[in-house]
Each structure stands twice: as C-alpha cells, then as structure tokens.
Write a protein that binds this DNA or RNA. Structure first.
Lengths: 207, 207
DNA sequence: GTATATTAGTGAATAAATTCACAGATATAC
DNA sequence: GTATATCTGTGAATTTATTCACTAATATAC
C-alpha cells in the first residue's frame, strides 16, 4: 500500500510525540490529544490509523507503547539508521554532534568536507574525512542517509557522489534544489525558504 | 485573497530560484523550467500565477526580474526582515552567522541564551544577550521573527516569551511542537522529523 | 509572409485530502 | 444494573489541489 507524504509526515510527528509520552509513563492517548500535539485534526489522525490498520480502544484511545511499536515496525523507525554529513561548515559541524539525532535513532557515522584544513581543525568524536574518501567509506560503513550542508553551488555534485556511493536517502539543507533519481528519497529543507514562508504567510494574514 | 500553504511554499521556492536566475543574467523562464527547478508541475505553477495574476509572455515565459519584484511586493519578501535566535547551542550559534540569511533578506539582530557563561564565550559579530533581556530588545530593535533553537523542554516557554515580546512569526527548530495564538505564524521544523520522514518514505518505497 | 512550434492562461475534469456524521463499544457515575 | 458520556472506526460528503485539454498569442524558421 502507498501512503501520502502528508500521512507519513503526520506519522513521523506522532512517533516523536509517542516517544515523549512513553518517557512520561502515559499509557493511552486519544486521537484528539494526538491531533492537538502534532497540529492536525482528530479526523485525519483516525483516518490515517484506519488506513494503516492501527486499532484503538473505545473511550481510552490508543495504547502508546503498542502504537509506537507498530509505527516503528511498519516504517522501520525503530532500527538505527546510519547517516553522514557532507559539508563541515558551521551548520555541518553543529549537526555532527547534535545529540538529539543519536537519541532519536540516527547515528552520524562520518563527516566529510572538501577542505583538508577544515577537517584537521574540527573537534568532534565523529570521524571526519576528505570528500574523496566518501564512496569508499559510505560503502564500507553501510551508510544509508546523506545530509548535505554544503553551499548551494556544490549541492548537486555532492548529491551525485552520495547517490553513486549508494545512499538511499538525502536530506538537503543547502539552498539549491537537487535532482535525484526517483528511487532515492530526498527532502530539500533550506532555512531561507522556511523563513520566507513565515514572512510571506504573516504578511498575507495581516491583510 | 487567501492562498494555500502549498502555493505560498512554491512561491517562496520560486522566489529563491529567481534570485539565482537573476544573478546568472537570465531574463525569461518558462513555467516548465520553473517547475523542474522547484519540484512541481508546470500546471500548478501556471495556476498559481494565474490566481496571483502574474502574467507571462507567449513563447518566452515569465520575465525574471519583473516576476521576482511582483512576488517580492505581494509577499513583502524584498524588504529586510529582522530576526533573533533564542538558544545558542551548536545549532543556534551556527545559525547566528549563517551568511545566507543576510544575503536572502533576513537580518539576525540578536542572539539570546539562558546561560551567561555561554554568552560570554560566544565569538560572533551579532550581539548576544541573556534571555531576560529579550522582551526589552525585541521591542526596541523591532524584531519581527524569532528562531527557536533551544531544547524541546524549553521551546514552549521561549515561544511564549517571544510572542509576549511582540514577534509576528516563529521558526521552531526544537523537537517540541509549540502552541501559539492564531495570529502568530509559525513553522515547526525539527530535524529528527525530517530524517524520519526520509527513512519512513524510503522504507515504504522499497516495498 | 506563411507555416510551425512553443508557451501562457484558464475553465472543466479529476484526484486527493479532509471533514462530517453517525454507528458501535465501553468505561464511569450513580 | 442502567444511563450517560466519551472515544474509535469508517463510509459518505465536502473541500481543496492538481491535472487536463484546449484556445490564444507570438517568436522562429524558411
């Protein structure tokens, strides 16, 4: 079966929220509360779950642990995913040891940069390499995800290298849109577009 | 008139692409090429422009400069927006002098953190302050946008402070969803959800 | 100057996503 | 034990978004 991006997006947010609930020791959660927590409606969430065949309990809602496991199983979110970061500027190094990633099931295995100087200067526990070694290392370390934090001009080239090396997904923080074959999942997330969206949105609201 | 988030999102991406085209000295661009560049279809883009009353030229497409100006005018994207960053951990400091922001019409006016120590250690040209001074500074410096880069636990509190201080939009990079009044535009953009989305998506594709 | 190919513009058709409305189940109150 | 309130589950209705299909305009080729 195939799910829409919207559904998958909601499911990922729900997964994150379930993690929080689990930590708090909460056992059941209603569609209404979930909706509230992730910014959706109770209808949509029940519809999503209905499609996915996740069942709840009348007057109690959904069992947090079990739901989290089901989502994790279905979308393979409860196994560690191996990622690398390409481009060790400020953003790249910030992400290198962004603790949350590790916590949330993503392991940053390596960082890459074109500048040897930069690599020598970086202080981190993660291994960093010249980009020339990327293909080799992605393959040998079984890295599945590439995170692009290079400047826009270099993004496409980096994407091509990553794909050739065998990653299956790419998260692109550079301002340039990248072209990838259909089989590769990718997401363009540049900050400027995000900020512009807010600016545009609130300017429109105002009227 | 009111535009959908999808439309506004596309328009923001188009705006970014037009900036690139302008730099390259390209004068005209077709809906097809625009679509390709931002990851949409030519139909949608023509529809968007039709709704927005942006006109093109038969067999030549849209005039880059003029289109960019029209979008900029309509969505107020060609005036500088003043923003601040709250939470000067690795991500926050990385964003503090993310050069692209300045280039793209966003001016980071100040950074805030709860830890005085951290503030003293930070090396940047941007002014940094204790969070207690936020209300005061947001008001006096006319800051319109807040960027939240604190840990999840603190996100809501920071959002409340920002809103009370008078910002009109919030970009939240923390993993927690924040609740804001309807009049405030906000966007939750946590990296983990983004990565999860990719992971989930490629796992679904695979089947 | 004429034919041709390309590109915008847009109402109509289609598809996708969300919401509604209500039946079914069951905890809770009394 | 009965009534009531609450919550899920899901077809149907509605709304929203996208794509199609075609007209009109005009650069370009020859």
């Amino acid at each position: 079966m195939d799910f829409s991006n919207n559904t998958i997006d909601r499911i990922c947010r729900i997964f994150g929220y379930l993690t929080v609930l689990e930590k708090k020791g909460i056992d059941f959660i209603s569609s209404k509360e979930l909706a509230e927590a992730i910014g959706a409606t109770e209808y949509t969430i029940r519809k999503d779950f209905s499609t996915l065949n996740f069942k709840g309990y009348t007057r109690r809602g959904y069992a947090v642990k079990s739901l989290k496991n089901k989502i994790g199983d279905k979308f393979l979110l409860n196994q560690k995913r191996r990622a690398c970061i390409v481009g060790l500027g400020r953003l790249g190094t910030a992400l290198l040891d962004y603790e949350k990633f590790q916590e949330d099931g993503f392991e940053i295995i390596a960082g890459f940069d074109i500048s040897i100087n930069k690599i020598e200067r970086i202080q981190t526990d993660i291994d960093v390499f010249a980009i020339s070694r990327l293909p080799d290392i992605v393959k040998s370390k079984n890295i599945e995800l590439g995170i692009i934090t290079v400047p826009g001009e270099a993004a496409q080239k980096v994407a091509d290298i990553l794909i050739k090396a065998g990653v299956k997904g790419i998260l692109n923080f550079s301002p340039a849109k990248i072209n990838v074959p259909q089989s590769i999942v990718h997401l363009d997330k540049d900050f400027t577009s995000a900020l512009r969206f807010i600016a545009a949105r609130f300017m429109v609201e105002r009227k």
